[in-house]
């Protein structure tokens, strides 16, 4: 029997998340199931980005990707992948994230009603400013920074900057007009959102200033309705396999993004150890707060983070 599953993406078909990650995964599933499971990308997303989780749980679409941080309060444990200084490679972070999260957090059932098929993070988030160079914490004080959702909001506030949560579609306008003084983004996204001409200063924070956790999930009833062989085939190309595949794509795009920026007049500097220490002193309390949050759920947050970081280190070393 053949099944066609619907895929919903809130990003355009040409975006790497849709084209390479969602549809790349779909292609692998089609091959692994020898064509018994096929996919149809819907022309339009069935829900807003924050509504994607509910849309897949309730069967509006069968498969989708979304950002955990878009629904604050719902996936508190996924913040583990969003802290500063966790790693320089999306592939290493994503694989380690999948391993650590499923090992320690699965029992909390944060993705209730869904089959969690994959986790990933984008490339390490960096600092981009229109005018102001950023070499110390004092430089970002009171600067207005456009950010997405999730832990980065708290990180921005902790650093003394002002987070601007404007819709992603307005990114270019608010940077160009000076409503925002800068943006925290992964390297691939600055060229992707056509921001290169607006950016004059970039500060690379070793290990990343922040990150964003993404989940790939499928409707539970649809998954359970598939024959066992097809379920197994899907799982085989999901999980760690998917984390590696998606992370590789992001690392590739990040490298291309950096190259595009190096070709322009952007002044690129690396955060000094002093600056990193400054940031750390401000964001450590956030990590501490998360340990407490985890503790309330019976998780030893500090141990999990240590394990997660060691895993990333091990994977990056290869």
């Amino acid at each position: 029997a053949q099944t066609t599953l619907t895929i919903s993406s809130w990003l355009p078909p040409s975006h790497i998340i849709t084209k390479d990650m969602l549809m790349g995964w779909a292609k692998e599933v089609e091959t692994a199931t020898q064509g018994r499971v096929k996919f149809r990308l819907l022309p339009k997303a069935v829900a807003s980005p924050p509504g994607t989780f509910d849309a897949v749980r309730d069967g509006l679409a069968d498969v989708s990707i979304s950002v955990h941080g878009y629904t604050p309060g719902r996936f508190p444990m996924t913040k583990m992948a969003e802290f500063p200084f966790i790693g320089d490679s999306s592939e290493a972070i994503s694989v380690a994230y999948w391993r650590t999260y499923t090992k320690h957090m699965a029992k909390l059932d944060e993705h209730k009603g869904l089959v969690l098929l994959g986790l990933m993070t984008h490339g390490p988030g960096q600092i981009y400013m229109t005018k102001q160079k950023v070499a110390s914490l004092a430089d970002v004080a009171n600067q207005k920074i456009r950010v997405g959702g999730g832990l980065v909001v708290d990180i921005t506030k902790a650093m003394g900057a002002v987070p601007l949560l404007k819709p992603a579609s307005e990114t270019y306008e608010i940077m160009k007009s000076g409503i925002a003084d800068g943006i925290f983004f992964p390297k691939d996204s600055v060229p992707a959102f056509k921001l290169v001409p607006l950016v004059n200063h970039m500060t690379v924070v070793p290990g990343g200033l922040y990150n964003v956790s993404f989940g790939l999930w499928m409707n539970e009833a649809k998954f359970k309705g598939l024959p066992k062989a097809d379920q197994d085939a899907i799982l085989k190309v999901s999980g760690e396999h998917y984390a590696r595949m998606a992370g590789k794509v992001w690392d590739r795009e990040d490298a291309a993004g950096l190259k595009a920026m190096e070709a322009e007049k952007i002044i690129i500097r690396t955060a000094s150890p002093e600056f990193v220490a400054e940031i750390k002193s401000k964001t450590d309390p956030l990590e501490q707060a998360w340990y407490n949050e985890a503790k309330a759920k019976g998780i030893d947050g500090a141990a999990v983070m240590a394990e997660f970081r060691a895993e990333i280190k091990k994977l990056s070393g290869k």
Partner: peptide, 23 residues
């Protein structure tokens, strides 16, 4: 085309998201 339950959920999301939109 999809299912009754999905349609019910869709109505809820549309009402919620349209009502609470910054844009």
């Amino acid at each position: 085309l999809v299912s009754f339950n999905a349609a019910l959920s869709m109505v809820g999301s549309v009402a919620f998201e349209t009502g609470m939109s910054y844009t």
